[in-house]
Design a protein around this nucleic acid. Sequence first.
RNA 1: GCCGAAGUGGCGGAAUUGGUAGACGCGCACGACUCAAAAUCGUGUAUCGCAAGGUGUGUGGGUUCGAUUCCCACCUUCGGUACCA
Length: 937
Amino acid sequence: MEYNFTEIEKKCKEFWEKENIYKITEDPGKPKYYVLDMFPYPSGAGLHVGHPLGYVASDIYARYKRLKGFNVLHPMGYDAFGLPAEQYAIETGTHPRVTTDNAIKRYREQMDKIGFSFDWSREVKTCEPEYYKWTQWIFLKLFNSWYNREKDKAEPIETLVSAFETWGATKEWKYFDETIHPPFSADDWKGFSPKQKERILQFYRLAFRSYTEVNWCEALGCVLANDEVKDGKSERGGYPVTRRKMRQWSLRITEYADRLLEGLNRIEWSESLKEQQRNWIGRSEGASLEFWVSGLEFSIEVFTTRVDTLFGATFLVIAPEHEYMQRLITHEQREEMDAYLAYVESRSDIERQQEKKITGCFTGSYAEHPFTGLKIPIWTAEYVLAGYGTGAIMAVPADDERDKKFAEKFGLTVIEVIDKTMHEGATIEDKLGKMINSDFLNGMEVVDAIEEMIKRVEEMSIGKRQINFRLRDASYSRQRYWGEPFPIKYSIQDEADSPFVDDSSDDEADIPVALNESELPLVLPAVESYKPTGDGRSPLANNADWVTQRYETDTMPGYAGSSWYYLRYMDAKNPNAFASKEALDYWQDVDIYFGGAEHAVGHLLYSRFWHKVLFDLGYVSTDEPFKKLVNQGMIQGRSSKIYRTFLTYRTVIGASVSNEPIYISKDVLDSLRQDEGIRENEGWQILRKFVEETVHIEVNPFSIFYEPLIEIPVDIRIVKNDVLDIEALRTWRLENRNALFIVNRSGEFTCGHEGEKMSKSKYNVVNPDDVIARYGADCFRMFEMFLGPIEQSKPWDDKGISGVSNFLRKFWRLFYEDVTFKQKWDETEPTDAEFKVLYKTIKKIGEDIESLSFNTSVSAFMICVNELTSLGCHKRKVLEPLVIALSPFAPFITEELWKALGNSDSVHQTGFPKVEEKYLVESAFNYPVSINGKVRA
RNA sequence: GCCGAAGUGGCGGAAUUGGUAGACGCGCACGACUCAAAAUCGUGUAUCGCAAGGUGUGUGGGUUCGAUUCCCACCUUCGGUACCA
């Protein structure tokens, strides 16, 4: 009987659906295991072969764990809010929901073909009110919570309010920060107006509204979070991003900086990913110091990690946007400074980053050195950023590269403070050497000097030990339509009030008020136009009804829905809670999470943050959401390239140029390039022959030249094994109708190739549907795994797919005769040799899946089939366990064969075959080279 | 610049508490079947050499009886990040 995968797949899918075999319920009698994939954003282009790589891996893992007796949660859903659908809506007027629904339908069809074991009854779509009701609910929890630093956890805001009512907020409170708001007593608090109270609470709420600097993208008409900006451009669309101040919502993720850092030590993620998060959080230990400004009644606070170098501080530099800027400028410097500040203003972030010019300007003021009393000038410069530390630095040109360059350019004093002669090759910023020119620090090693100096400045109350983070509070407002509405209304809303203007008046306007839980979901209304308003508001501001209700017109960012979706899967249809207590207690957290590394500092950080808040508030029982994380590599396209040129050649009459485009076969081209000077190699001979045939005269090879080449991507569908179908190219692009092709000796035209991202414009997209139609879903799954280690990026190249396809047919043939349509297995007892083959395979497969080495487990199956074939083994007792072991990889063929062996249930619900120790020991010695067997003599 | 990961045949890749390098697959070559082709099956395939034998895991050193694996320096590629004080 032929192995007919199309028929088998159809039959299996019907059976699975009828029996509902992948539906899962909480079962306290079984250990739980949660296998999660990062859910996709349903884009209009559909899936290409790169997308399912992680899904296939996770599916194999989930199926394996199920066979091992775990109750496995393995769900799928859609991250359905987002910019592309909205951009499309702006262009065409189509409601994003329509676009999104269509895309989801297509994704589902494609995924169904691959044979995943998702429990679709738990599907989530972030754009559905039933789902975003709970996104809004969590937002309310964030809004109604504050971070209690004493207990180091989030608490309901009521505990803060009652603390204010009892004690107020005074300097005795350990965590009181005067720079945020002035102290007040309990009585003061009781006397405050609601607006005043709310203003204070906004400094504590985990979700809060403030007037701060944001990344504004004019082209998208909205604000972006730091991780959505790459190289000064928007991640989506690549539009320029500028900094501007705006009133908008943020999440106080900075309170969790330390815990987010610490938690990384307890989870199994790749080192590079953890390192990315650590860098993003950017903890640095140092001290803050105050410098008194001569003649003016205030001091400037700086942050430094190198207090030891204080005696080498010869000037201060403040950021151009520093709040004391104007007060520091003296009469004499006024003109120069205004010009400089105007220049800085004119520079975009992109310019600043690309050309790092050393620029700066003297303010005219001086600060006093706290120990020497010397007057040191206060400068301003672009390289000091307002957003980090205190926005001011003490410059130590002797020990800091940037300060040094700055001092050199502007002729400022340099005092050497560290003797590094003992440390050859140390850079000026290394923390090595002995202190010199530093009074009481002289002779100390750098690390000791840091401690000593901190002690001194703390005694003198001019500074203190401090830890700084690079992490900023997360921007949470988007001036867009296709996102979750905020469950917030305002007590009074002034329609003329622009979000770009700071509203710091104390009138009753503008107090954000949380909706009641019973009012959720606040459903996204219809709008006439999806265009941003152009004045910094979302399209919702165009909806008169929405505005008169005084609802917040911004919507939540893309990461809102994806920050907690893994919890919704635990109890996806619950109308009364984001998930029931029982479900949350049972499933707890994600055991293994498959997804791309591109979400390292976005989704993965926000999820951890949300999860920790929910943990603090008692809703979840773990404080990290994803125990183990696997980053599957990207599958790149393998683009084919052809090379076009025009030829110049000399005939007896004179020089001629070809006027039709000429394409040169890649191998001929390589041979031409090899040695153009000699011009006797194969390539030139072919070229010469070609010209002679074209112009029908003999040509001196030294008179042939080709113009500079243009590399052109060509549709991979008209290229087979790097050989171009010339006729197909002529019809594909009409300008090539009469093009000339220089082919190689064997008459073939070969193409170059390059691995790059799959995209329509590069004609290198491979659709899984096509692969499945040709080879079957099992083959597709196994081949994706066989391509290489799961974490590695690699180009899609279907040259090797025949190997996997052969394997499946060979496997099939162990069960069926080719011609006679007869089953082949026999019921006799297997020999020891046959058992050995079986057991070492089972053992290897089990170990490989546990360690996620799916590529080598596919190899193990191939070896096994080859060995059984050469042994002539068709015994049920060998084949049956093999079918089970293969079932995670190839669910369709194994289901069919399992039934053929006379079983009525599903192979996917049996147990993973056990391994017999006896054969393992023997096989280890008898088959040393068969499977990775390096065995001692 | 800094941080992280990785360099093995013609190609994708195996093998690391240090113990026969190149499993498995592709490709290629030869053979079988066929009038023929495709498909399938079998054999071979790191490299130099007729052979004995030598050389080989990015480069150069080191530790060791023994190194793809450990240590030092360097080179290359990929990913991340960047005036972060």
